[in-house]
Amino acid sequence: MRISSLTGLLLLAAAPAFAQDAAAPQDAPDTAFEIELNGAADTDAGNCRLTFVARNQTGTPLDQVAYEFAVFDTSGRVTQIVAFDFGAMVAGKTRILQFDVGGMACGDVSGIVANDAIVCTVEGTENAGICLSSLAARSLTDIQFGI
């Protein structure tokens, strides 16, 4: 995994593991950028590795998309603000990506909230509006995940 900083935030980027067809979030509109928290597993390094299924159903190719997320512990406190870079997402594309939340076991994470679209480039122009307004989130784990 590649780790770098972005505007003072922890940016964790990963290459897609594999692509598969999976059910879309039940309440996601047909024009959504869907992010599903599909799995969470502890690593040997003591981090929580999150597996996301991202689907670009906006009808617009996204040159680059990254979101800022707030991570909550089991007492409801925000413990980290992280940024996950989903990379380029052509229209209709599904990608499976993994990101680590450093220093936390998955059992210590109660929820994750999408705070902002910090990078959203469409045809070479920054356009955070589409990435945030079309975002739909759900979780298939015990960790709550939302907007």
Score class of each variant (00 low, 15 high):
Leu10Glu: 08
Gly46Phe: 04
Asn127Ile: 01
Cys106Met: 03
Ala13Arg: 11
Thr31Leu: 04
Ala128Asn: 14
Phe33Arg: 05
Ala17Ser: 15
Gly107Glu: 12
Gly92Ala: 08
Cys131Tyr: 00
Glu36Tyr: 05
Ile3Trp: 06
Thr58Ala: 05
Ile147Thr: 14
Leu135Phe: 12
Ile143Ala: 05
Thr43Glu: 00
Cys106His: 06
Gly92Pro: 03
Arg55Cys: 01
Ile147Trp: 05
Thr74His: 02
Cys120Arg: 01
Asp85Asn: 15
Pro61Glu: 02
Ala88Phe: 02
Glu34Ser: 14
Thr43Ile: 01
Pro61Leu: 03
Gln57Thr: 07
Ile35Val: 15
Ala137Gln: 12
Ala88Tyr: 01
Phe145Val: 02
Thr31Met: 03
Ser134Met: 01
Leu135Glu: 11
Thr51Asp: 12
Phe18Asn: 09
Phe86Gly: 10
Cys48Gln: 05
Phe52Asp: 05
Ser110Val: 05
Gly92Val: 05
Thr7Gly: 07
Gly59Pro: 05
Ala114Asn: 12
Cys48Gly: 04
Asp85Leu: 07
Ala105Cys: 00
Lys93Phe: 10
Ala70Gly: 04
Pro29Glu: 08
Pro29Tyr: 01
Gln98Leu: 03
Pro29Gly: 14
Val53Trp: 11
Arg77Asn: 14
Arg2Phe: 08
Thr31Phe: 06
Gly111Arg: 09
Gln20Leu: 10
Ile112Met: 14
Ala114Pro: 08
Leu135Pro: 13
Leu50Ser: 08
Cys120His: 02
Val90Thr: 12
Phe72Ser: 01
Ala137Thr: 15
Ala14Asn: 13
Arg2Gln: 08
Gly8Asn: 13
Leu50His: 12
Glu126Cys: 02
Ala24Asn: 13
Gln26Phe: 06
Asp108Phe: 01
Leu97Cys: 06
Ala54Glu: 04
Asn38His: 13
Gly76Ser: 01
Ala15Leu: 13
Leu140Lys: 13
Ser75Ile: 03
Phe72Met: 03
Gly39Ala: 15
Glu123Gly: 10
Val119Trp: 02
Ala15Met: 10
Ala23Gly: 10
Ala66Leu: 09
Ala117Gln: 04
Glu36Pro: 01
Met89Asp: 06
Lys93Arg: 15
Ile35Ala: 12
Thr43Ala: 02
Gly59Cys: 04
Ile147Pro: 12
Asn115Ser: 14
Gly87Ser: 10
Leu50Phe: 12
Ala13Lys: 07
Asp30His: 08
Met89Pro: 06
Asp142Tyr: 08
Gly146Gln: 10
Ser5Val: 09
Asp27Gly: 08
Pro25Trp: 00
Ile96Leu: 14
Asp116Asn: 15
Gly107Cys: 04
Ser133Cys: 00
Asn127Thr: 12
Leu6Tyr: 15
Phe145Lys: 02
Ala136Gly: 13
Arg2Asn: 11
Leu62Phe: 15
Asp27Met: 03
Phe84Thr: 02
Val122Ser: 08
Met89Ala: 15
Thr94His: 05
Thr121Val: 15
Asn38Ile: 00
